[in-house]
Amino acid sequence: MHYKKLPKEFLEEFINRLRKWGEVHAPQKKGKNTYFFSRLDDPSKVQIDYTRTVIPPTKKYVLRPVEPLMLFHGDRAEEHTLRTTKLVLFGVHACDINALKILDRVYLSEPRDPYYEIRRKNIVIIGISCMPDDYCFCKSMGTDYAMSGFDLFLHELRDGYLIRVGSPMGHEITWNISDILEEVSEEDIEYLKKFEKQRLSSFKRHVDISAMPDILDLAYNSRVWERYSERCLGCGNCTLVCPTCRCFETYDVWLSVNTSMRVRRYDSCFMVSHGLVAGGHNFRPTRLDRFRHRYYCKSYFDPIHGINCVGCGRCDEFCPAGIKHIEVLNEVIGEIYGR
């Protein structure tokens, strides 16, 4: 890894210089306590200490909530061509970077999703270190630190940021702005160590994942699923804000008498239609089936890539019924142990 240091007084200058590689989008405040990633016109507006955005930046910029796939004029089809803007996402947290790697695996495996690929190629990712709040459980999921998946990653120091360079693009940027960068000092390294130590000891929520996939599977008939699914409203908020949920539904829209458009939009496995097939058979007919399905999909242990959840805490913070993902997991796990 190549390391550099950005002195604090150059932060705004740094952000402005990033515009050379694309439109800069960064966390900004809307309302009292909600954060959104959006275009940053004034670098002083950046919320560098934000907790989490509602919609994960990584998902928002690669998978649109609604997007046309193709146009039909009578029998003639035409692929929808994307107007691509080059984007620099400034201030992405480690969990979201790790989540993007999961989305990449889905959308960039053959056959590739062309729309995803074009957007993805045009995104520069600048990560930033963070302190966990009451909802974070990324440490349990092993996604609290990003070792890849970014171009630059900034770690807070007393008087600046330690920059990790994670890609050729990252090198290009640091090379071009070397006049505002410094070398990392011994003191900075000491600070980083202390910061990391404090970060790692600040997590309030934990779940033990080593045997979790098996224990959850064994607990298929646990009463805990049932109890929580009765509280669940089935609204699908958790899937909407999840950085690794990526189901989509497609449908056709008519624009004129002979022009139509195939569109896709986010879908959620909490919707009754998700498992419904023609003739009325539903593979997940009850709320319980759908509730459990999401936990299983998120907790799936892929032998190569690990677990599908990055512990960002969004589903907990934004659940209107106050259901906490990690509490459900812990309760199911605990129940089996306790018997």
Partner: peptide, 23 residues
């Protein structure tokens, strides 16, 4: 077997079956 399918290529998520040990 059959399931609801919207893409056929592992992207749309509709045809996923299984649990935490086997999706």
């Amino acid at each position: 077997l059959e399931r609801r399918m919207k893409c056929g290529i592992g992207k749309c998520g509709h045809c996923i079956v299984g649990t935490s040990t086997s999706i």
